[in-house]
Amino acid sequence: MIQVTEETRAGWHVVGVKGRADSEAADELEAALRAAVDGHPKVAAEFSALDYISSAGLRAVLQAARAAETRGVEFAVCSLSAPVRKVFDMSGMHHVLRIHGELPC
């Protein structure tokens, strides 16, 4: 289960995601990120309160990143917790995503 918050900071639309991005929550995560990408030129997914992610959650993030690329939207992932960072690293997400230690804004 995830909870999503949205705010604007220094020109970035920041989507904060809290909870567990597992197979049950993946559709909700993808919808939230895609909606943000549809409506804003710079989108940051802020994952400091994300406790868990599986390949289904990663796919949701990748789908949003693809949509951003198609639309010419800047898309970044920020503030990963240590265990979530490990899953991103094992999956080679740094090859295809901009991953920041902190918010880019």
């Binding site: 599986s54 390949s55 990748l62 990143a65 094992m90 999956s91 080679g92 090859h95 295809v96």
Partner: peptide
């Protein structure tokens, strides 16, 4: 292929890789 560009990256296989 984890280094494939975003648009070519296959949707499947990541779970088993993990």
């Amino acid at each position: 292929d984890l280094a494939a560009p975003l648009r070519d990256r296959p949707a499947g296989g990541l779970g088993i890789h993990l």
